[in-house]
Nucleic acid binder design. Structure first.
Length: 257
DNA sequence: ATGGCATTGCAACAATGA
């Protein structure tokens, strides 16, 4: 089974690339973030023509998440359903062939002293609560998406430049460790021979050609899946050429069922 | 200390991202 996470930075701007990528790489499930459009404007029919089901949770202009799959999803949830009045569409989950796939577009956080960072903190707490209340570390589960957290110094191109930012600081590293403590494993780190580590490169300053990036897109798996992971890899090629997203797809290949 | 690049929505370049 191939499960992919990809922040597309607008599905309308990335429509042709996304269709081509799915055609080439044939994922079983692909979790998309930053759709930046409504459910009505999502190219559901284009993916259906390729044989993919789509469940979406979009909104105008910002945010938006989706799950595309070869098989029919079950038990779809949109948002945390925790009573918080939150207009930001950042979380969707569904089950595919017995694997619960949770797709999050974690908040960026703006600046460390900002309201946006407070929202990021609160959102991470709400995610923890959702996992406690609606999921189990004993079930086959993948938590994937754009976490907007670089978990370790080895995930950062320039530690001095990034330390203390909303993407890389002690509190965010602790939040990431909290997810691991809940019972998740960073599938990428089950393997130590990666050609490509980073998953995001800034559009500016020639960051991609200089390979000045961050690893902020992750696929965390529960124990029932750990031994089944075959390979986790970043499709750096998708970051090349005309009009790429600033994120590359991260691919998890595993033996399932 | 700031912009740099990209996208959206509204028609002003402002808001946002990472």
């Amino acid at each position: 089974m191939r499960i992919v996470t990809w922040n597309v930075n607008s599905i309308r701007a990335r429509r042709e690339r996304a269709l081509a990528w799915v055609t080439q790489h044939q994922p079983d499930v692909i979790a998309l973030q930053e759709l930046k459009t409504t459910d009505e404007a999502f190219p559901t029919d284009d993916f259906a023509a390729l044989g993919y089901h789509a469940v979406t949770w979009g909104q105008k202009t910002y945010n938006g998440v989706a799950l595309l799959s070869r098989t029919q999803p079950t038990d779809v949830v949109r948002g945390f359903d925790d009573g918080v009045d939150d207009p930001q569409a950042r979380f969707i989950a569904a089950t595919f062939e017995g694997v619960r796939v949770c797709c999050g577009y974690f908040p960026n956080g703006g600046e460390p002293d900002s309201d946006k960072y407070q929202y990021k903190r609160a959102w991470l707490g709400r995610l923890d609560a959702w996992l406690d209340d609606h999921a189990s570390a004993d079930e086959a589960l993948v938590l994937c998406g754009d976490f907007n957290i670089a978990p370790d110094a080895s995930d950062v191109c320039n530690v001095n430049a990034w330390e203390g930012t909303v993407l890389f600081n002690p509190e965010m590293r602790a939040a990431f460790r909290g997810l691991l403590d809940w019972g998740l494993t960073d599938s990428f780190r089950l393997q130590d021979d990666h050609d490509v580590v980073f998953s995001w490169w800034d559009y500016r300053r020639l960051a991609f050609v200089r390979n000045q990036g961050l690893r902020i897109d992750h696929l965390l798996v529960t124990e029932p899946l750990v031994a089944r992971v075959e390979r986790v890899w970043v499709d750096r090629a998708e970051r090349k050429g005309e009009s790429p997203s600033d994120h590359a797809p991260v691919v998890l290949d595993m033996r399932w069922p």
